[in-house]
Design a protein around this nucleic acid. Structure first.
Lengths: 196, 196
DNA sequence: ACCTGAACACCGTTCAAGT
DNA sequence: ACCTGAACACCGTTCAAGT
């Protein structure tokens, strides 16, 4: 083994994620990634299938990161059984939503890749996405009851996703304090899905 | 004038929009557009600045289309004065939201380009976007009062945008009827922003 | 087993030349 | 005034050749 692996898949994905944030999806080129990990572009094809495959790996890594952070928040509030009080459920779900927003602010391009991919784009796997959002679904179940849990979770994630999508792309060009709008919307949504 | 304009800006934008829907943003190449309007790629630069400029024009045309459709819905229900009843306001805002969704279903790629562009992408102009959403803002004012109109409109558009973004990209991979989830969420949001 | 240079097809863009 | 072919830089990808 004369050239015993000069780079690794982890390095490649890490470099790709950094490039995605700094230069956008268009800046995530095979040549730029290769240069960052110290090899030439053709060498990358020993580690990933092609560019779309690399982008999918970036997406999976990003959603895994999010999942870990959501799980940390989700378990912090309640070591409890099925039915907590409505107050703690509301507080918990609000914390989860805020962590979601923090994550989007920290890596906007990665967030966008995962949660607002185009109609033709490759999404992260259903499992990893489900895992990432599991704490939120649990909190929604506690709040809305098992009968409306899925609808409630979808309503909350749809709102949060749409809000962040517009915030990150700068579509909130009418005036007003965006943080205030976030908290207003969050309170509205939680009240709406709590109401039986 | 030996070659008296063999194509036009309108033709070019129309071809670009068709290509965007059929082949995605990646398929919207200068060569493909040129071929569709019957010229060679370099000729397009007599009509548009560059590819990004063309994409911006597509975005503007798309949002103008949406604006016309929203305006048609917005005026149909009420030729009234400032304060309609809460019932008609709710019905009107629900109709607007459903028209928004219909539009997204008809041209998913165009919708995505306008409402879920990446952090680095060029958005449509603030004016045209504001015009398109004006009927919705008016309905939100009737429903939530002038004090909360902007927050309420943002909450509704954020939810609708996020819902459609996830629906179009196939992120609703947990089971359940998507149409039912839409109506559930819509009713929840309207109730939430109606509550004083 | 991994890396490389050379090569190919493709795309955006420019520009001198045609009419 | 608009269109064209030729050209350039760039990118994704393949592959035979190196070690």
């Amino acid at each position: 083994m004369p050239t015993p692996t000069r780079t690794s898949l982890d390095d490649i994905v890490a470099a790709a994620r950094a490039l995605l944030e700094s230069d956008g999806l268009a800046g995530l080129t095979m040549q730029a990634v290769a240069s960052h990990v110290g090899v030439r572009a053709p060498s990358l094809y020993k580690h990933v299938g092609d560019r779309d495959d690399l982008i999918r790996l970036v997406s999976e890594a990003t959603v895994a990161d999010l999942g870990n952070r959501m799980a940390a928040i989700g378990s912090s509030g309640s070591g409890s059984t099925d039915t907590g009080s409505n107050d703690t459920s509301s507080a918990n779900i609000a914390e989860l939503a805020r962590e979601f927003r923090r994550f989007a602010h920290e890596m906007p391009a990665g967030y966008h890749l995962v949660f607002a991919p185009g109609p033709h784009a490759a999404c992260p796997s259903a499992e990893s996405l489900a895992t990432a959002v599991a704490p939120l679904l649990a909190a929604a179940t506690a709040l809305a009851g098992p009968g409306h849990a899925l609808d409630a979770a979808r309503t909350l994630t749809a709102w949060a996703n749409g809000f962040l999508s517009m915030e990150l792309s700068g579509s909130f060009n009418l005036g007003g304090d965006v943080n205030h709008a976030w908290e207003y919307g969050l309170a509205s949504i939680i009240a709406a899905i709590s109401a039986e």
